[in-house]
């Protein structure tokens, strides 16, 4: 469902992503791991067609990010870092706006709202303006907008950032429940999250893919916890 071939992106003299390639299929939850500044968010932004790559390409559900960016954006749901939204809008108004842009109308819109609002547990804040919500609720509203069109591919940039332990557990449970029908990519540097939800882990640092494996394989191969494996790999290969 996702095919990434040699993606490259520079910001001035800084090479943010340097020839990243991987693929992900339906039923997989792929964890993009890496230290801050590793290129995770830039990779996701290229996959969602927010920024153009300097080199390489990728396809999402058969749509190329360079030639069919609208097709790509139709087929995926994206939760950006910090869950950006329109602060002055109510949660309901915001979700209806997303439905309008995605051309989900009438009965389909009511069904979509009836599905995602309880799923993301935002019923109690449905009529509240987004600026008055806590970070956790904002994150859940962001997740709801990413799920509203029931996409085949989900790209979630640090989905549990800012959530309390209970909310983290709920979001991980939700990701786990959706995993079998979708292809999900999550970026994180919380390693317990990778063990909890990811069926595959890619470690990136300085814009390059260092490891592509499963969390269990990584632990078995290095005879260490995922934390130690992460430190060992990112330090030794970046040194």
């Amino acid at each position: 469902m996702i095919e990434v071939k040699g993606l490259r992106r520079r910001f001035g003299p800084v090479v943010a992503v340097d020839g990243v390639s991987f693929s992900a299929a339906k039923g997989q939850v792929l964890g993009l791991l890496g230290p801050n500044g590793a290129g995770k968010t830039t990779t996701m932004r290229m996959l969602t067609c927010y920024i153009r790559p300097d080199g390489g390409t990728a396809s999402v559900c058969g749509n190329d990010i360079l030639t069919d960016s609208i097709g790509v954006r139709r087929s995926l749901g994206y939760l950006a870092e910090n869950s950006p939204a329109y602060p002055e809008m109510t949660v309901g108004g915001f979700l209806k706006f997303i439905c309008d842009v995605r051309q989900i109308k009438g009965r389909r819109r009511r069904q979509a709202l009836d599905r995602v609002v309880p799923m993301c547990a935002i019923d109690s804040v449905y009529h509240q303006t987004i600026e008055t919500l806590s970070k956790g609720y904002k994150r859940r509203v962001g997740l709801a907008q990413a799920l509203i069109h029931d996409p085949d591919v989900l790209i979630l940039d640090e989905p549990t950032d800012g959530l309390d332990p209970n909310q983290k557990h709920e979001v991980r449970k939700l990701i786990g429940a959706m995993a079998k029908d979708k292809c999900i990519i999550i970026s994180t540097h919380i390693l317990e999250e990778v063990e909890a939800v990811c069926s595959r882990a890619i470690i990136v640092a300085r814009g390059k893919v260092l490891v592509d494996s499963t969390p269990q394989e990584l632990k078995d191969k290095h005879h260490a916890s995922l934390d130690e494996v992460f430190r060992k790999i990112t330090r030794s290969k970046c040194a």
């Binding site: 067609c49 609208i70 954006r73 994206y78 939204a85 842009v101």
Partner: peptide, 11 residues
């Protein structure tokens, strides 16, 4: 506020 990223990742 960053909503430009939301807007331009919508179709």
């Amino acid at each position: 506020v960053g909503s430009v990223e939301l807007l331009f990742t919508l179709p």
